[in-house]
Structure formats: C-alpha cells, structure tokens
Nucleic acid binder design. Structure first.
Lengths: 203, 203, 203, 203
DNA sequence: TATGAATGAGTCTTCATTCAT
DNA sequence: TATGAATGAAGACTCATTCAT
C-alpha cells in the first residue's frame, strides 16, 4: 500500500478548498468573509451556517494539512523495508511529494501560523514538533547505521525540513518538474544534506 | 573589509524598527496604524508626517531588507580570495549570518510579500530573483571548478536558499547557537547540499 | 364566581410561555428567533409554522395580558356587593393579585410597548386607556359616595395604577409576601392614596 | 440653597442628550449606532471617538441619572427644617420634580436596566437600593414621630417610589400639570399613602 | 410540522486616513 | 510635528425570515 504517494484531491471539503485559494492569494487577514463566501458560492450567512467563524475555517484548514502530513508520513515510514536509509528516503519522498502536490495547502498552513489564535497556534506547533521528531529520528537512525556522516543530525534534519517546506514556496504545477521529479531531485539533495556516504562505503 | 559580517543595528530608522516588531508579532494586516504610531512613540498624524501610508512603511522595510541582503552579499563575494569555493563559502556565511542576526527583518520581508501592493511586490520579486542569481552563479562556478558534484546546480541553489531563509524561522538569540555558530554549522550543510567533494579530491 | 382571584397557569400557550420567559430576560430586541424556538422546543421553521413573525408573538402575548387584565377586572367588579367601596376594593385586589401572580407577563407587556409596531402599539394603548377608565370610574364613584376624600380623583387613580403596576417590578414568588398578602397590604395603601375616610365616618 | 428644585438642562452632554432621545423612542436594542451618530450630528466613527461602545453610552446615561437623583435627594433632605415630616415632604418633592422635569431620562434609566451588561446592572441596582433606603428612612422616621400611621413603612415607601417613578411614564411637558403642580398634587397623595394623620392630630 | 441550508439587510465596531489647531 | 476630532469604507458577524425536503 502506497496511498501516501498519491494526491487526495477529493478530501478537502469545497468550502475549505475555496478558503484555501483565498488565503493563498490574499492571506488570512487580507481575505474578507465576503470573499470567502463568494469563492465558496455562498452568501455570507450561508458560510456561517457551516463554520462559526472565519478563524474556524483557518483552523480546520490547518488541522487538515497537519493531519494529512502526519498520517502520510507514518504510512510512508511503515510501507516497505525498515532499514534506516529506506525509511529516510520514503519519509523525504513523502514530504517532498506532499509539499509539491499540495503546495498551496502547505504554504497556507505554514504562512498563517501567526493568524491562528493562541490556542490553535499551540496546537499547530505541537503538530509541527511531533512531525519534526519523525525526521529527527530517521536522520539519527541513519547516522547510527552509518548511512549519514553529519556531525549534527538535528541541524541536518532542520535543514532538510527547510528544503522540503521550501518546495511549497516555489513549486508550480506547470513548472519544469512534476511532484515525482521534485521528490527524486530534492530527495537526493536531502541525502547529501545529511552527509550521505553512499550505500557501498557504508557497509 | 568585512563589514558584511557585523550586524548594523543603527541602520534601521526607529519608525521602521517599531513597525518591524509590530509586523512580526501581528502581521501587516493585523497591525493598525494606531499600533504602529504608538510603538514608534508618535501620534497617528505624526506617523503620517513621516510616511504617506501604512503600505509605504512596509515597502521601506522590505526595501531595506532586500538592499541590505544585496549589498552585503556583494561585499562578501568581493572580500577575499576569488576562487569559486571561497566565494560560495562567503556568500553562504553572509546569508546565514544575516538571517540569524536580522531574523525578524528577514522573516517579515519574506512573509509579507503578499501584503505588498502589486507594484511593490514586483519590485520585491525582482530583488529576490537578482539575489538568487548570485547563488546560482556561485554554485554553477563551484560545479564548473570541480568543488561540487550536484547534477542540478539550480535545484541545489534553491535548496540552499531554503536552508538559509529557514534560519529566520527558527533562530532565537537565546538559543543554542549564535549567528556565527549557525553560519559554521549550516554552512557545512549547504556545502553538502551542493555535493561538496572535498578540497583535495577536487584538485 | 371569583375565578378572577385564581391564577390561570394553563391559559398561556406553551410557545407564548417560552417567549415570555425570553422577553423577560433579554427583552424583545435582545431575543432572537432562534432562542425563542429553542425555548419552545421547536425548530425555527417550526416556530414560524405557529406564528408568522416574531412581532406576532409579542402581539399575542400583549393581547393576552391586556385581555386577561380586562376580563378579570370586569369579573371582579361584577362579583359581589355593588357599593362603590366594595367595587374599588375588588378591582384593586384583582389588579394587585394579577400583577403579583403574573408579574412576568405584566412586566413584559408593560416594558415592551415600544417594541410593538405602531398599529399594535395603538391597540395596546387603547386597551390600557380602557383599563384605566375602569379605575377612574371606581375612584370617582367612591369620592361621590363619600368613601374617598381625594380632591383629584384622576391623579389618585393614576397613582394607584402606578402602585399596582409597580408590583410586577419587584414581586418575587419567594419573597416575604404571597400574592394575597400583596393584595391585602397594598390594597390598604391604595385606599389611603385615594384619601379613604373610613367606612363609619363616611356614612 | 435649593438648587435641587431647578432643572439643570445644561448638564447632559450633547451626545448623551441625543442618545437619550433615541433610546426613549426606540429602546436601547432598537437603536442602532448609526441612528445614535446621526442624532448627535456625527458619523459613526465620530461617535466612537467619544465613546468606546454603545453600551458605554447607556452606562454614562444611567450613571448620570442615578447620580443626579442621589445628589438632589441629599440636597433636598439637607435644605430646610429637619423634622421628619419636612424631610419627607422635601424628598418627595424632589423625586416628583425630577421625574417630571427629567421624565425622559428617568424613563430610560428605569426601562433599560435589562440592557445593561451584568457589571453595570449591578451598579445600577446598588444605586437604586441606596436611593430607596433614603425613602425608607424618611418614612420610618415619620412613623416614629407620629406623622404617619402606616403599619408597613417599607411597603408604603415602595408604593411611594412606584408613584414617583410612574410620573416619568405619563408626564408630558404640555400636559395639564407642570412639574411643580405634579409635585404638589402627587406629594399629597404620597403623604396619604404613608398614612398621614395630619399635623395637628399627630402632636 | 422538523430539518438543513440559505439569504438580504442589518448589527456593532474598526480601519486607514485627513484636517484644523 | 503633536493633538483631538472626524470620516467613508469596510470589517466580522447576526438578524428575521424562507424554502426544499
């Protein structure tokens, strides 16, 4: 099972889909409820029939993004050989695919953290930390097993996270690379960032 | 001359300094002119005496950040040995230092792009592209000269940019690393991301 | 027949009962149809099945209050000796009982006059004037028959009305006095307000 | 000094004056901020320059009314002979004058209690109780000194309060009685309500 | 009658901005 | 430049009401 590789376009409810587009274009504070409603094909009170507030829409969007990231990451880690290099490769592939396939969602979830009210910001940060710990672990395992030579695994993991999240900043569906291409090319760069020493030499 | 290494705290005019703090905390749209004025120790009309609009403040802040990045980068490139590896190292060091020393400024300049009106957004993007071309060139030179093995220099440069900009997201003055520490540790990671093959073996 | 002395709790239809409580707590404009529906155990469209508008509910409530006041007053006047003092006493007793027993209804009917649309406000005022004329007549008769010494019967009647209506402002079911106690104690005060000269001396 | 007898028309700030008229006509919840602003000859933000909220306007109006009632009452009690009947008469005169002269203000302060948010409602009620205690005391003193025969002084005081407050419900500047006429005629009724036994017979 | 979904008009409030002083 | 006062436009949100099911 490798569902974690395929995009799931059907999953975002239409109102969130519309909100996503609005927030990506104008930002949370730069988007009015009128715009949100119009984008969703509703009147303003119609929008409020489904969500109690503008903030609640952002929160739902953010939760969707973070949950999707988490569940796909775990699926990727579990799906295949369990040696640390394979796990690293699959997790990176998953992150890169997602940040390319769902670039807009990832972008908004990342750039609107400050727009979340404290309670939900804390929730987001907890999700983000939990997510980061997956990568920390995988890089540390790779170092332990001799795949990676980085003397600072946590910094390498942080750099790798920046690379993956950076994808959502520049990825365009009509660009040179498709998501799979991004995953391959930047997956290799992430390996290097961790100080990959080569399969052969490490054994 | 290595002024590009030292922070220049005096350079941000007080109003921009105050605005920076406000925008960092609440975002551009989340900050009112009343807050800006108060943070700057001015009345609202007093603020308008210095700047014709809220947007103009953001624009000035953004220009300051991009110009500082540009001029320091060029100073770094010019300041020392001109072999491509040295130039790469100094440019990376400059970028990392700046994103740590001026993390807030870099963060705001990056995260408020969408808050710029079209004209100024275009200006920002031009600056950003011009800036990116510096790194593209340095990486390409490094590949040409055998320092780097990456088969995709532009992608490596993009990944490196993500690493450097990422610093402004997580850097805290009271954290484990000081700016110089960041520059050293993440400088090494950036080298790896470009596929650094070692000084010796490359000659 | 002295039904006019006993409260008639069954008589307020449940929807009006619920609306009464809502209006008493938050006022007409401060109560939403959603609250009305919920208080009545109905959905909003369910509420509109019974009443064509929120205003119609208030109107019904108001009519109920004014009609009840009117019919009980007439029953009280008719029920017993027809000398003017007895008629005065019974009318006052009726008013005081009602304003204590149905304090909430009286309170709402009185305090939401301004919330009635012009047509219904006029109707309310007509009812109120008709009601006041009962008291005017009874006081005037008492003066004519030598029971009361007030030189200004209409003003005395107005003061008495204030006393009776005032009951609905302060009466609490768990207070010191029960409705009958209120009727007795304040009935005496109302007599005094009319300049009661004593049964004996007046004959 | 008998300032407590003369109306003080200059004292209500113009915005409160305008709000008073609006609230009297349509009620607090029935009056929009737009109406308030227009009545005050301001734009809506102009109104908010002077008051932070609609509620704050009502609170100010209410405080003004209650403070005026309190300070005039005390002035009336202090101004003249200190025997309990004179004090009773002057307090009643003061209350009646005020409820006629400032009928609208008294009406609004009374009828919008439920529109005050809990904190300010509590404040109002404290003022009202403090005010009522003045009358309780004066009636009790009158009973003690043999001026009044009422067996229930507190109930008599409550009835008298209802009479005085009732004035603000029906008083019209162009009506039969002017404020002084109201004070005289209803002052006598209030005496009767307390069971006035006559100056002579009481000595 | 209950329900979910919807809406035009309106709510209070705040915005960036200006002007007279 | 500071201040108090002001405003048109817009903000998020709620209202009473309706309709298809």
């Amino acid at each position: 099972m490798d569902d974690w590789r395929v995009p799931d376009p059907s999953s975002l409810p239409p109102i969130l889909e519309a909100a996503l587009e609005c927030f990506a274009r104008g930002g949370y504070h730069g988007t009015s409820t009128r715009e949100l409603a119009e984008a969703a094909g509703l009147s303003v009170p119609g929008l409020y029939h489904h969500y109690p507030s503008k903030q609640a829409i952002l929160v739902d969007l953010d939760r969707f993004a973070m949950n999707s990231l988490w569940s796909r990451s775990n699926a990727a880690l579990a799906d295949g050989p369990q040696d640390s290099l394979s796990r690293f490769d699959r997790l990176i592939e998953c992150l890169l695919l997602l940040h390319a396939q769902s670039a807009t969602l990832a972008f908004v979830a990342f750039s609107e953290i400050r727009s979340l009210e404290p309670e939900f910001r804390a929730e987001h940060i907890a999700s983000r930390d939990r997510q980061q710990s997956l990568l920390d672990e995988v890089v540390a395992d790779g170092v332990r097993d001799g795949y990676f030579s980085t003397p600072h695994p946590r910094d390498a993991a942080r750099a790798i996270t920046s690379i993956c999240m950076g994808v959502s900043q520049w990825f365009r569906p009509d660009g040179e690379l498709d998501p799979a291409g991004v995953a391959e090319r930047y997956g290799e760069i992430c390996r290097q960032a961790a100080g990959y020493v080569g399969r052969a030499s490490s054994r």
